[in-house]
Structures are given as structure tokens and as C-alpha cells.
Amino acid sequence: MTPPDYEYLRKILKDHSGLDLSADKQYLIESRLLPLSRKCGVPGIAELVQKMKGGSSSITAQVVEAMTTNETFFFRDKVPFEHFRDAIMPEMLKARANRKSIRIWCAAGSTGQEPYSLAMSLKEMGAALAGWRVEIIATDLSTEVLEKSKSGVYSQFEVQRGLPIQLLVKYFKQNGELWQIGPELRAMVQHRQLNLLHDFSQLGAFDVIFCRNVLIYFDQETKINIFGRLAKAMEGDGFLVLGAAETVVGLTDVFKPFPDKRGLYRPSGVRTGSAQAATSMPKIAAMAGR
């Protein structure tokens, strides 16, 4: 890949999705875009770029989608789901005992493994949730992955990564080499197309937000902005779950780490401060990022 092509792709990705690739991510582009170029019937990335420059918005959309689609599997990283079961839900069952409803948002729901892992975790809690209304909203930038998530159909390869065999047998139906998650679990998850760069206040207020392995793609200014808006989309006693490689520390004070639970955060209550931080910090952050 030539340096000008790389720069062109970086800029396109930044403008369309906020994905901020550092200067050394050629391998990532190649691993994602070579399969796409084959699919589009061109020999390589140079030809894809040519088509994009020629004004093919469909190719551009596919490139953005291929680059922003994250690899995911059921119960990815395990620990966040243990936090969900052992820390978040016990506390929510107490805190929401009167209204008996919980709203959960998977902000990078991707192909559904995360929202369905949460749905299975909730099912496994059994009688503790009898009479409760639990909403799981899965959003993603890509409509293609949302369609896959809605269908709940996974390959034999996909169901073998992270999903305990007992849960596969219990919650999935086999159809040849494919496995589909059962209708009861599919009905627990609602899907919406959403770009985190845009306003998401219409989604309402959440008790729990899973926003994992998506903020790593954004620059600091954008991260701070998103954290500020996530805090506003969350109940004061809610929980934010980030990916293992992500943190709020050093970026914003609207969330504070939950003691002894890596990746788990709660609103700090510093809401007015967050607005200031979201507007005043970017310059410093942008400089620090260089």
C-alpha cells in the first residue's frame, strides 16, 4: 500500500466513522480490505482507493464498514460478564426493586454476541428476575452486522469461541452447520443503527451501558465527547463497562472507576464539569496524543 493511499484511507475513515488510525496500522487495513477487494472483483487496495476517489459511495461505505467491524465472540473477555452477574445485577436488583425494570445498552453491539451473552446471563439468573422488565438495546454503526445480530444465526466456528457448550445446547437451535439463538432470547434484544458520533439522547436513560472495544478507534477529543454524552444517557447510579484496553482515567471525570472491578465505571455525579471538560479539554488532549 502506498503512503498516499494509506493517508487517503485514514482521512476517509476519520471523516466517516471517527476511526482514528495511527500511522502504523497498514496491516489492519490490509487484513480487512484485501478480502473486500476480492469481493468487489478488483486485484487490491490501490484499485479500491481508485474507485473511492472516482466517487463510488457504495465502495466507500463498504470500506468504512469493513474497517469498523470488530471481531467479537460470546462472553468476550469473560470478566465483564462476571462483573455483570456478580456486581452490576445484584446492585440493580436492589436499586430498582420498586420499578422492577432495567435498561441495558450495548453501544457497539456488532453481530450480537455481546447482547445475546447478556440475555443468556439474565436467563441464567432465573427466578430472581421474575416479573422484571429488562430491555437490551443493541446499536451499531453497520447495518450489515445489525442484520446478522437480528437473525441470531452463527457459524459452528463462531459458537465455539467463548460460549460454554451447556449454553449452546440450552439456548441455540441447530440447523446443519449453523446455530440460531432461540426466539425467546432474540426477543429480548432490540436493534438500532447508530453512529456514536451523532446524538443518541433519543435512546433515553440507561442503567447499564456496555461500550467495549469501540472507543479505542477514536481520538481523545472524540472519546471525551462520547464519555460526556454517555454520562448524560445514564442513570446516576448506573454502570458503564469498557473494554479491557480502555479507560476514562486521564480523559474525563464524568465517570469514576469502580473499586477492584477492572473495566467497570460509575457516573461520578460531576455533570456540569463534564460539559466543560468536553469543550475545553480537546486541545490539550489532541496535543498529548501526538
Binding site: K25, Q160, G162, N213, G243
Partner: peptide
């Protein structure tokens, strides 16, 4: 390798590996 590693993690035969940074 990934599937064997995932399943062996599942039953506690090996430790969870740290996820890779993109």
C-alpha cells in the same frame, strides 16, 4: 488453536489471556 484455547479456558485448564490492543 483459538477454539482449543477458548474451550480449555472455559473449563479452567488455562488462564484467560489478555486481549490484544488494536
Amino acid at each position: 488453536k483459538e477454539i482449543v484455547a477458548a474451550k480449555f479456558q472455559e473449563v479452567g485448564l488455562i488462564e484467560l489471556t489478555e486481549p490484544n490492543l488494536v
